[in-house]
Design a protein around this nucleic acid. Structure first.
Length: 938
RNA sequence: GCCCGGGUGGCGGAACUGGUAGACGCGCCGGACUUAAAAUCCGGUGGGGAUAAAACCCCGUAAGGGUUCGAGACCCUUCCCGGGCACCA
C-alpha cells in the first residue's frame, strides 16, 4: 500500500497547498515530507535563496560574454527549442543542464565562454493555433517564448540573455533572407567543388548565341535556389507541402496526416551538389559515430555504372544505373518507371491501352502505398524491346511502379537471378531467369537452386561459365563478381556504351511551404516571366497582416490574399509583378542561428567577420539525435556555401556534437496491451501493478512521456518541491548523458539528501554563517585526502562530461568529510567543486563563507599532490589469477621484498606460494607503484 | 533484411588503456531518536555454502566457445533489447 501512495503522489495536484510566491512567478507548493517545516529556520531550504541568486545573476550580468575571447575560448551551444504551448518538459533541461555545468566549469578555469540561447520561433503549431483562433501567430509565439524564458531562468542556467534571438524577429529573418539571396546568386563549380558567385558561371557559346533570355535560363538552371515543377509531398490536412524528411511512412511527421504526391511549382535548394563534401567532411568532425553513419546513409553514395541500351526500331538509347554491372550478362528484361517521359513514344499500339491503364493506376497511387515494403511487383509490357550492349541480346521493355523516376535515370536493367525485386517481378510475368554469379561456399542443393533460377543470389560470389563471346574474351569465368564489375564497366566505357558513375540517394531540398508563419522569400515574379530578388538594403521583407491564416484548398499560401503586399509595380518601367507567396520552411532559421549568436545585434551584417573568426566553430553542440539528418545536414550545407563565398572562416560549423538521451517514464498496460494512465494505477510493495478501478493486473513498461499517459514531468513542479539544484543534479545523476533514462520520482530524494547534507556539513544548520573549522595545520589527514581526491576526480569527470560520476565523487567526499574535522579551505574547495552542478547552493554557501561576490569566476581548485601522497599502498595478491588476499606494502618496495611479503601473507592460507613460483607483478603505469601480484604455482 | 548502439544486484548505474566486479544513489532490512509517525543519524544489503560467531570456500557481468598469468572489457558464434534506414536498382 505504501507503493500505491507513491504512484498516486505523482499527480501533485492532490496535495497542493496554498500558492506561495516563489521566484519570478507563482508556484504552488505541494505539502510533502521533504519541505522542512518553517520552524527549522536554518535547514536547507532552496526556496529561500534560489530566486535570489537567479535575480543576482541577471542584474549583475554575471554571465555576459566577453566581447572578444581572451585566451582559450569555448562556444557551447544547445539546440534551441521550438516554443511550444505546453512549456518546458524535463527533456529540455537535460541537455541544457549539461551545457550549463560545462560552461560554469570552463569559466572557473579562465576560459572565455559563449553560451547563448534563443528560440526556433517560426513553425506550424503556432500557425495552426492561429487558424483555429484567428490570433496572430506572433502573439502566441511571443507568449510561449516568455513562458520558456521564465522556466529556463528558474533552473538557473547561465546563458548570456543579452544575446537571445528569435527566428521570427524581422531583425533576425532579415539575415535569413539575406543568406537566401547568397544562395540564389551562387552556383556550384563542380571542378573546384565549391560555390561561386553566379556572375562567374561560364556561359557556353551556344547558349550565348541564343540571346539574353537563354543566358538567363542557363543561369537559373545553376543557382543553388531554383524554381521548378516537382512532384511534391502534399499534405491536404496541413495544407502544405513537406520535405521528404518530414514524411514518415507516408504520413506527415507532424500530426500523422496522409500525404499524397502532387506536381507543384516549388523552390528547391541544390544541396546534392555538396554531397561529396558533406560526406567527406564528416571525417573531420567529432560527432557520435551513429549520427555520422545516419548522414552517410542519408546521402547514400553508390558506386556503379550507367549502361546504355538501344531501343529496337527507335533512335533512342535508354540508360540505367546499376551497382551490379557484373550481372549484365544475366539481364533478361528492362523496366522503366511509369512516369518515364519516353514511355508514350515507345509503347506499341497493341499494348497502348494496357500501358495507359497501368500508368493511370500508378499516378493515382499515393507514395505511401507505392512504397510499402515487399509489395507485389506489378508492371506492363510496352511491346518494345531494348538491346543488351554486351551481348546484343534483345530483351523486352516493361514499365513497373517499383522503378522510381526520382532515382538514377528512372530505368532499371532486369537481372532476376541476382536482384530480389527483379526476381519477384520476373516470376510474376514469366520472364527468363539467367544466373551468372554463384556462391562458392554454398552446399550442393543451394548451388543447384541458383543454377536453375529457383533461388535469387544477391551476395558476393564468383562468375559462372557463359558462352557469350565478350564474356569469354574478358576471361570472366571463375573471377569474383567484384572484379568482374570493373572489368565489364571498363569494357563498356571503351565501347562508349556505358561509364562508371557515382550516384547519391538523397535529393535536393524542397525549400518552400504554403504557410503564413515563416520567412517570406525576397523575390518578385514579374509579368514577363522574369524573377528578380530584392536588394539587401530592402530587407527585411516583413510578413503582411492577413485576415485568415489558412492556405487555400489548391495549396496557395495565405500570403496570396494579402493584395497590397503582394502586388508590386516597378517604379521605373511600370512593369507589374507579384511577390513570392510561399514562405521558407522552419529549418531555415535554425540553419545559421549559431552564427547570429556570435554577433546578435549587428545591423550592418549577419555576423561580423572578426567575431566569427574569434568564436567559431561551435566547440560543443548538445541536442537530441532526432535532428541527425535534417537540421544538422541543412546547417552544414548553408555553412559550406557561406564559407565558399567568403562569409565565414570555418568549413564545418559544429566541431563536436553530443546527443543527450531521452527521458522516459514508467507506464502500464493491461492484458489487451492497452496503455493505462499512471494515475489510474496502484503499485504494491512487491512492485505488482493493478488498475485502481477494477483491480486488473497490469504490466509495467517503459514509454516516452506523453500527455495521454499522464506521465509527463513538469520541471516547475519538481522545482517547487525540491528546488532547482535538485532538479539539475537528479537529471545529471540518472546516468550517462548520452543514454536514455527513466524518470523515477523516488530516486530524486537521493540527490536532495546529498544537497541537504552538503548544506548541513558546512553551515551546521546555523541561522547565519557557517560551522567552526579547524586550522589548516590541524586538519585530519582523511579530510585532506577526501577533498583533494575529489578535486582530481570531479575535474576529470567534468572534462569528459561524466556528470553522474562527478556527483558520485562529491557524495563520497561528503561521506568522508562527515564527522571529520576539516578546515575552511576544504569547505571552500568543496563549495567550488559543487558550484557548476548546484550553483544556487554553492553561491549561498560561498556568501556564508564570507565572500561578497559571485563565485562564478573563482579559480577552480587544484589538487595538492602532497595531500594525496601515501607511503604505503595496497597490493592485491592473486594465485592462479584468483584474488586471495590484500597486503599493504611500502610504495617503493623492492621486487624480492615484495615476493617475500606475498609468500609470508599466503603461508598460513589454503594457497601457499613459494619464491620459486612464477610472479607477475603489475605496476601502476604512471607512478610505477605495485598494484597486483599474480602467482602461478607450479 | 541492412547499418549503428547496448545487455553488469530488486532498480538507476560504477569499473581510467586487459589487473580487487558491483563505486555512488534508490529500494529493502536492522538499530538510535520519538508517546507515535515523518524527517534525521548509524549499520547491513549480488547469489550460494560453511560457522556458535568469524575466518573461509564456491558461483557470478545475456548464452556458448577462444586468446591471456589474468577477461565485464579483446576475438568468434548465438540470443535478446533500443535506435536508424529500407522497392534507391
Amino acid at each position: 500500500m505504501q507503493g500505491a501512495a507513491r504512484i498516486r503522489s505523482r499527480t501533485l495536484d492532490q496535495r497542493l497547498e496554498c500558492p506561495i510566491l516563489f521566484g519570478l512567478w507563482t508556484h504552488r507548493v505541494p505539502r510533502t515530507s521533504f519541505i522542512p517545516r518553517t520552524a527549522d529556520v536554518a535547514e536547507y531550504r532552496p526556496q529561500d535563496f534560489e530566486a535570489h541568486w537567479q535575480r543576482y545573476w541577471v542584474e549583475q550580468k554575471t554571465f555576459r560574454t566577453p566581447e572578444h575571447p581572451q585566451g582559450e575560448k569555448f562556444y557551447c551551444l544547445d539546440m534551441f527549442p521550438y516554443p511550444s504551448g505546453s512549456g518546458l518538459h524535463v527533456g529540455h533541461p537535460l541537455g541544457y543542464t549539461a551545457t550549463d555545468i560545462i560552461c560554469r566549469y570552463k569559466r572557473m578555469r579562465g576560459v572565455s565562454v559563449l553560451h547563448p540561447m534563443g528560440f526556433d520561433a517560426f513553425g506550424l503549431p503556432a500557425e495552426q493555433h492561429a487558424i483555429k483562433t484567428g490570433e496572430h501567430p506572433g502573439r502566441i509565439t511571443d507568449a510561449n517564448c516568455d513562458h520558456f524564458l521564465r522556466q529556463m531562468k528558474s533552473i538557473g542556467f547561465s546563458y548570456d540573455w543579452d544575446r537571445e534571438i528569435r527566428t521570427c524577429d524581422p531583425d533576425y529573418y532579415r539575415w535569413t533572407q539575406w543568406i537566401f539571396l547568397q544562395l540564389y546568386h551562387a552556383y556550384f563549380d563542380h571542378e573546384l567543388q565549391k560555390a561561386r558567385p553566379i556572375d562567374e558561371l561560364p556561359i557556353p557559346a551556344e547558349v550565348q548565341a541564343e540571346g539574353e533570355e537563354a543566358v538567363r535560363r542557363y543561369r537559373d538552371d545553376h543557382r543553388f535556389a531554383y524554381y521548378t515543377e516537382a512532384d511534391v509531398n502534399w499534405c491536404p490536412a496541413l495544407g502544405t507541402v513537406l520535405a521528404n524528411e518530414e514524411v514518415i511512412d507516408g504520413r506527415s511527421e507532424v500530426g500523422g496526416h496522409e500525404v499524397v504526391r502532387k506536381p507543384m511549382k516549388q523552390w528547391m535548394l541544390r544541396i546534392t551538389d555538396y554531397a561529396e563534401r558533406l560526406l567527406a567532411d564528416l571525417d573531420t568532425v567529432d560527432w557520435p559515430e551513429s549520427i555520422k553513419e545516419m548522414q552517410r546513409n542519408w546521402i547514400g553514395k553508390r558506386h556503379g555504372a550507367e549502361i546504355d541500351f538501344e531501343v529496337v526500331g527507335h533512335d533512342h538509347t535508354l540508360s540505367c544505373f546499376t551497382t551490379r554491372p557484373d550481372t549484365l550478362f544475366g539481364c533478361t528484361f528492362f523496366v522503366l518507371s511509369p512516369e518515364h517521359p519516353l514511355v508514350d513514344e515507345l509503347t506499341t499500339d497493341d499494348r497502348r491501352s494496357e500501358v495507359e491503364a497501368y500508368r493511370e493506376k500508378a499516378r493515382l497511387m499515393s507514395d505511401f502505398d507505392r512504397t510499402i515494403e515487399n509489395r507485389e511487383k506489378t508492371g506492363a509490357f510496352t511491346g518494345a524491346a531494348v538491346v543488351n550492349p554486351i551481348n546484343g541480346r534483345e530483351v523486352p521493355l516493361l514499365i513497373g511502379d517499383y522503378v522510381l523516376m526520382s532515382y538514377g535515370t528512372g530505368a532499371v536493367m532486369g537481372v532476376p537471378g541476382h536482384d530480389d525485386r527483379d526476381f519477384v517481378f520476373a516470376r510474376n510475368y514469366g520472364l527468363e531467369i539467367i544466373p551468372v554469379v554463384t556462391d562458392p561456399k554454398a552446399d550442393e542443393p543451394r548451388r543447384r537452386a541458383i543454377l536453375e533460377g529457383e533461388y535469387c543470389f544477391t551476395d558476393p560470389g564468383v562468375m559462372l561459365p557463359c558462352d557469350d563471346p565478350v564474356f569469354v574474351e574478358l576471361g570472366l569465368e571463375g573471377k569474383s563478381n567484384e572484379e568482374a564489375k570493373w572489368i565489364i564497366t571498363d569494357w563498356l566505357a571503351a565501347q562508349d556504351r556505358g561509364r562508371k558513375v557515382v550516384n547519391y540517394r538523397f535529393r535536393d531540398w524542397l525549400f518552400s511551404r504554403q504557410r503564413y508563419w515563416g520567412e517570406p522569400f525576397p523575390l518578385i515574379h514579374w509579368e514577363d516571366g522574369e524573377v528578380t530578388t530584392l536588394e539587401a538594403s530592402e530587407l527585411p521583407l516583413t510578413l503582411p497582416e492577413v485576415e485568415e491564416y489558412k492556405p487555400s484548398d489548391d495549396g496557395e499560401s495565405p500570403l496570396a490574399r494579402a493584395e497590397e503586399w503582394l502586388e508590386v509595380v516597378d517604379p521605373v518601367t511600370g512593369r507589374r509583378g507579384r511577390r513570392e507567396t510561399n514562405t521558407m520552411p522552419q529549418w531555415a532559421g535554425s540553419c545559421w542561428y549559431y552564427l547570429r549568436f556570435v554577433d546578435p545585434h549587428n545591423e550592418k551584417t549577419f555576423c561580423d567577420p572578426l567575431l566569427e573568426k574569434e568564436w567559431m566553430p561551435v566547440d560543443l553542440y548538445v541536442g537530441g539525435a532526432e535532428h541527425a539528418v535534417l537540421h544538422l545536414l541543412y546547417a552544414r550545407f548553408w555553412h559550406k556555401v557561406l564559407h565558399d563565398l567568403g562569409h565565414v572562416s570555418t568549413n564545418e560549423p559544429f566541431q563536436r556534437l553530443f546527443n543527450q538521451g531521452m527521458i522516459n517514464a514508467h507506464a502500464y498496460k493491461d492484458e489487451r496491451g492497452a496503455l493505462v494512465p499512471v494515475d489510474e494505477v496502484e503499485v504494491d510493495g512487491n512492485g505488482l501493478a493493478t488498475r485502481i478501478s477494477d483491480g486488473a493486473k497490469l504490466q509495467q513498461i517503459i514509454a516516452k512521456m506523453s500527455k495521454s499517459l499522464r506521465n509527463v514531468i513538469n520541471p516547475d513542479e519538481v522545482i517547487a518541491q525540491y528546488g532547482a539544484d535538485t532538479l539539475r543534479l537528479y537529471l545529471m545523476f540518472m546516468g550517462p548523458l548520452e543514454s536514455s533514462r527513466i524518470w523515477d520520482d523516488q530516486a530524486i530524494s537521493g540527490v536532495y539528501r546529498f544537497l541537504k547534507r552538503s548544506w548541513t556539513l558546512i553551515t551546521e544548520n546555523r541561522d547565519q554563517g557557517v560551522r567552526e573549522f579547524v586550522d589548516s595545520g590541524d586538519e585530519a589527514r582523511e579530510s585532506l585526502r577526501a577533498i583533494h581526491g575529489a578535486i582530481v576526480e570531479v575535474t576529470r569527470d567534468l572534462d569528459t562530461l561524466s556528470f553522474n560520476t562527478a556527483i558520485s565523487h562529491l557524495m563520497e567526499c561528503l561521506n568522508a568529510l562527515s564527522g571529520q574535522a576539516f578546515s575552511k579551505q576544504t569547505a571552500e574547495y568543496f563549495t567550488l567543486l559543487l558550484a557548476p552542478l548546484a550553483p544556487h547552493l554553492a553561491e549561498e554557501l560561498w556568501r556564508r563563507l564570507g565572500h561578497d561576490a559571485s563565485l562564478a569566476y573563482e579559480h577552480w581548485p587544484v589538487a595538492d599532490e602532497k595531500a594525496l601522497a601515501e607511503d604505503t599502498t595496497l597490493v592485491v595478491i592473486q594465485v592462479r589469477g584468483k584474488k586471495r588476499a590484500i597486503v599493504e606494502v611500502d610504495k617503493k618496495i623492492a621486487e624480492d621484498e615484495l615476493k617475500a611479503a606475498v609468500v609470508g601473507v599466503m603461508a598460513d592460507t589454503n594457497f601457499p606460494v613459494a619464491v620459486e613460483d612464477r610472479f607477475i607483478v603489475v605496476r601502476d603505469k604512471k607512478s610505477g607503484e605495485p598494484r597486483l601480484v599474480n602467482v602461478i604455482v607450479q
